[in-house]
Design a protein around this nucleic acid. Sequence first.
DNA 1: TCCCAGGTCTATG
DNA 2: CATAGACATGGG
Length: 222
Amino acid sequence: MDKGIIAIYEALLDAYGPQGWWPVAGSYHQGDYGYPRNEKEAFEIIAGAVLTQNTAWTSVERALENLRGIDALDPHKILTLSLDVLKSAIRPAGFFNQKAIYLMEMADFFVGLKGRTPSRKELMSVKGVGNETADSILLYAYKRPEFVIDAYTKRIVTSLGLAERKAGYMELKNLFESNLPGDVALYQEYHALLVEHAKRFYSGKARESSGVFVDFLRDLSY
DNA sequence: TCCCAGGTCTATG
DNA sequence: CATAGACATGGG
């Protein structure tokens, strides 16, 4: 048991306040963990989870807006589109050739669920859904207590000495889940806070000086 | 001009 | 198992 995991959460929440992830219906909803409120919003989160793979969220927003513009932020509608139309809509999000295929398959998978919550294993069987996308979908679209590990999170915990650089996804996921109560709102907020913190201290130029600056979390990671 | 962004897949050893 | 290369647009 590593109390640092909880101490870090408290320090981040204190520093940044509630983040209000995941953006739904085009906007953030700080401190409101009630989303999604229907199937359509759930699919919007799922589409965003696929589109944001290795891509800045501002680019994802453009793609989502394009889809919304042709009323295609909807799995049934996506299934009626040609691959080329889908590609041109999501173009701003990059990797559009493969993401169009991923979205098409995800739409088919989602419709086939008929409202049922998929298992992690089922999600991972869909092309384009790896560990992080599966957990993001389960945590934010289905409100299941699955901790999301992204590149930012890994940078932070390895930098703080809480994990080895070679640590795999499941190892890091377990580090958080074994030290926290399985609470959906907590998992959502914690992940969002880690991203916010990493954007300030561990991304872009800040990353280069990561050996120089002092992360205020360092003393908490015992 | 070059690096980066809320990863995943495929091929190779 | 683990690691490299491919995938693509937009902002700093």
